[in-house]
């Protein structure tokens, strides 16, 4: 490096970062590129890159390409790949890590799946419980307003059969839960 050149800030490689942000051992380095994961994946056909491909891209430090791909957001979290992986790579956990990382720099350009998660946890963070009717109507109105008509019979069925609550339920220990969540988020940030 030429003298006087600005020093490059130390940064974790993309691979190290993915591993560090995954709880326990991700075993990402153990991947032998066999493709069992993609072959087992129920939504693999709709992914821009199969899990095997994504792991090779992570090792090649292709940060933006990985984080802008729809792959993690199309993971249905069924753990089929995880139990079948001959190298015991914690694939589902890595997909969750990639989802979280893709939101930091707004790499993934579709908001449909991230918004669903955000709306879901918003109910949990304010009431302590999930609220299906609120979540579905909120999400559909924003992302698929015409879809409301397509599933109108289902909605009416769910309501007449008493399977939809009209008001969310709030737990008693909401104040405590909020403190727990706030503390966890604070710890997570200091970890970064």
């Amino acid at each position: 490096m030429a003298e006087g050149a600005p020093s490059v800030p130390e940064r974790l490689s993309f691979l190290d970062e993915v591993q560090a942000r995954t709880p326990g051992e991700s075993r990402l380095l153990m991947c032998i590129q066999c493709g069992t994961c993609g072959g087992s994946c129920p939504s693999g056909a709709d992914m821009q890159h199969t899990p095997r491909h994504i792991f090779a891209m992570i090792r090649a430090d292709m940060r933006e390409e990985v984080l802008s791909s729809n792959t993690p957001w199309y993971c249905v979290s069924c753990y089929y790949c995880t139990v079948r992986c001959p190298q015991d790579v914690h694939i589902t956990d890595i997909m969750y890590t990639l989802k979280r990382m893709s939101l930091v720099g707004h790499s993934y350009d579709s908001s449909t799946a991230p918004d669903f998660s955000k709306m879901f946890i918003n109910w949990v963070e304010n009431y302590g419980r999930a609220f299906e009717l609120g979540l579905m109507s909120q999400h559909m109105l924003r992302h698929n307003p015409l879809g409301v008509f397509k599933i109108a019979d289902m909605g009416i069925g769910m309501v007449t059969k008493g399977r939809m609550a009209f008001t969310p339920k709030r737990i008693q220990g909401m104040a405590g839960l909020k403190q727990i969540i706030a503390k966890a988020k604070e710890l997570e940030e200091t970890h970064d």
Binding site: P23, Y96, R100, F116, V124, A130, H191
Partner: peptide, 24 residues
Amino acid sequence: DWNCCGATEYISLHMLASYAIIAR
């Protein structure tokens, strides 16, 4: 007074907080 386990949604956004609400 149990709370929601977060399903597959909470962990998609926050790692530590998702384990914390389950651990509660």
